[in-house]
Simulated assay, not measured.
Amino acid sequence: MTTATLTTKGQITIPKEIRERLMLHTGDKLDFTLTESGDVLLKPVTRHVDEVFGRLGKSGQAPLTPAEMDAAIQRRMAETGA
């Protein structure tokens, strides 16, 4: 188990091994979900095009700009609750 300390301002530093495992980077957004049992789930909200390169293409589809790809990723994540 990895622990972090809450500051007087209500902030924590996410330990390096957790940041690396979740592929978190400066500016990424995180979703905190409180379960019925009282556990807290932490999920990254932000995804970068580099992480999903090649997964959005379809035969005959015109290439998308990085901004269009990011928007498509965000829409899909919102639809699936990821």
Rank of each mutant, 00 (worst) to 15 (best):
G60N: 06
H25L: 07
I14E: 02
T46E: 09
P15N: 12
I14Y: 00
L41S: 01
P63L: 04
I12P: 03
H25R: 12
P63V: 03
S37M: 02
K43D: 15
M1F: 04
V49I: 09
A72H: 10
G81P: 01
G54V: 00
H48G: 11
G27V: 13
S37L: 02
T7I: 05
G60E: 05
H25M: 10
K16V: 12
F32P: 08
T8H: 07
H25G: 09
D50H: 13
A82S: 14
Q74W: 09
K29C: 14
K29D: 13
T65N: 07
V49M: 02
E68D: 06
H25D: 08
A82M: 11
A67P: 02
T8W: 03
D70N: 13
R19V: 08
L24H: 01
P66N: 10
L56V: 02
A78I: 11
Q74Y: 09
A82G: 13
D50V: 13
T35F: 00
F53D: 10
S37A: 05
L64R: 04
V40M: 10
A71V: 04
L41C: 00
F32C: 06
M23W: 15
T65M: 10
L34W: 03
K9G: 14
K29E: 15
M77V: 08
H48K: 15
E51K: 02
D70M: 12
I73H: 00
G60I: 00
K58Y: 14
G27Q: 14
T3L: 14
E51D: 06
E17A: 07
F53H: 09
L42S: 15
M77S: 07
T7C: 05
D39G: 04
G60L: 04
P66W: 08
L34P: 03
P66A: 11
H48I: 13
A71Q: 09
T80L: 15
T80M: 15
L64H: 06
F53M: 12
G27T: 13
S37P: 00
E20R: 05
E51A: 09
S59D: 04
S59H: 05
L56Y: 04
R76E: 08
S59M: 04
K58F: 12
M77H: 11
M1W: 02
L24W: 01
P66H: 10
L34Q: 06
V40L: 12
F32W: 11
M1V: 04
L56F: 07
L34G: 05
I18E: 09
A82F: 09
T13G: 00
V45A: 10
T35V: 00
L30D: 03
I14G: 01
T26Y: 06
I12Q: 01
G27W: 13
R75M: 11
G10C: 12
